[in-house]
Computed example of a mutant assay.
Amino acid sequence: MTVNNNTLKHYYKQGFAKQVKDANRCYYCGCEATDTDYCPPLEHAELVLEFSENADFISVPACYECYAMLHNERVLTLAERVDKLKTKLAGKYAKALKVYHMWHEAELDEMSPEFQHSIAAGMSLGGEAASRLAFVPFILSSEDASEIKPAAKDCFIVNEQEFTSFDDALSYCFDTFGVQKSRFYDLLVKECAGDFDKALSQYQHRYSAPKVLDVGKEKIKAFAKQHKQNSDFVARATERLMKQDAKLDIDAALAKLYREYIAR
C-alpha cells in the first residue's frame, strides 16, 4: 500500500542552519532558500524504508534551482547529494565557467563592444556559478538538538602543492607550466575530472610531444649531413637504439650510433 507524503515526512528530521548568518540560505549553494529538499526524496522514501537502505532522512533548505536539480534524484545521503548537485551545476554552467576562468576584466577593454558584452555576461554568470560550486554547506541543527557537520572543504593538489581554491590552482598551472589556457582547462574539466596532476601529465603528453619530435628530427637531419649518412637510415638506427636502451635520449643514441657504427 502506498504511503502518502505527509505520513512519510514524519520519518525525516528537519535540518536548519545552526548560525543566524546562514538562515534562509540554500544548504547546497548558499543562494536564497525557497524550497525544502528531502534526503532521500519523498518519492523514493517508501522503498528505502521497506528495504532498509542506508539513508539520512533529513530535510534541508534549498534554492529553487538546486531543489529542481535534486528532488527526483535517487541519492540517499546528504554528502552524496551535495556532490551530485555540484556535478550538475558544473555541467549546466560549463560554458560560462570556462569564460570566467579564461578571461579577466582587465582584458575587456581590448575587445570590440559586441565581444566585450558577450564575454562580460559569461564572466558574470560563470563567476556566480563558481561561487556556488565553492560554497561549503553550513552546520545543520535539528529538532533533537543533534548537529550535522559538512565534509571538509575540498583542496586542490598541483605538483605536491595544496590550494584551497580551484582558481588559485588553475592560475598556478597557467603561470608555472605555461600551458595554453583553453586546451588545459578542457582537459582538466572534461577528461580529468578536476585532477590537476593528471591534466598536466595529459597535456604534456598530448601537446609537448610534437615539439620533442621536431627537435629530434632536426638533430637527425644535422647528424646525417655532418657524417654523410642517409637520414632515413639514421632515423631508423636511432629509434632502434633507443628501444634497446630506454635510458638513451636522442643525443645519447646519436653518439652511440656514431661511436659503434660510423666511426669504426
Score class of each variant (00 low, 15 high):
M1D: 13
N6K: 08
N6D: 06
T7S: 00
K9I: 02
Y11I: 09
K13M: 08
G15P: 07
F16Y: 14
A17N: 07
A23V: 07
Y28I: 03
C29M: 03
E32W: 08
E32Y: 10
D35F: 02
P41W: 06
P41N: 10
L42P: 01
L42T: 04
A45G: 13
A45S: 13
V48S: 07
L49V: 04
F51Y: 13
E53I: 15
E53D: 15
N54T: 14
F57S: 02
I58W: 12
I58F: 11
V60Q: 02
P61S: 10
C63W: 03
C66Q: 09
Y67G: 06
L70W: 02
L70N: 06
H71F: 04
N72Y: 07
E73R: 01
R74N: 06
V75C: 11
V75W: 05
V75F: 04
L76F: 03
L76S: 04
L78S: 02
E80G: 05
D83R: 14
L85S: 10
L89N: 15
A90N: 09
G91W: 15
K92G: 02
A94K: 14
L97P: 00
V99F: 03
Y100C: 01
Y100E: 01
Y100F: 02
Y100P: 00
H101N: 05
M102T: 13
E105H: 09
E105S: 10
A106F: 12
E107N: 14
L108P: 06
L108C: 07
L108M: 07
D109W: 02
F115S: 04
Q116L: 09
Q116P: 09
H117L: 12
I119D: 06
A121M: 08
G126F: 03
G126K: 10
R132E: 08
L133W: 06
A134T: 12
A134S: 12
F138D: 03
F138W: 11
I139W: 14
L140I: 01
L140N: 00
S142F: 08
E147L: 15
A151D: 14
C155L: 09
I157Y: 06
I157V: 06
V158L: 06
N159S: 08
Y172I: 00
D175M: 10
D175L: 13
F177T: 03
S182H: 06
S182C: 05
R183I: 03
F184P: 01
F184K: 00
Y185A: 06
D186I: 02
G194I: 10
S201N: 12
Q202R: 11
Y203L: 03
Y207Q: 02
A209I: 14
A209K: 13
P210S: 13
K211A: 08
V212S: 08
L213M: 15
V215P: 04
G216Y: 08
K219Y: 02
K221C: 09
F223C: 01
Q226V: 00
Q226N: 06
Q226L: 00
H227S: 14
K228H: 08
K228Q: 12
K228C: 02
N230Q: 13
N230H: 11
D232I: 02
V234W: 00
V234A: 00
A235R: 09
R236L: 11
T238S: 00
E239N: 07
R240F: 10
L241N: 03
L241R: 01
Q244N: 12
Q244T: 15
D245M: 01
L248D: 10
I250T: 11
A252S: 07
A252F: 09
A252R: 05
A253R: 04
A255I: 14
A255C: 15
A255R: 15
Y261D: 14
I262C: 04
I262W: 04
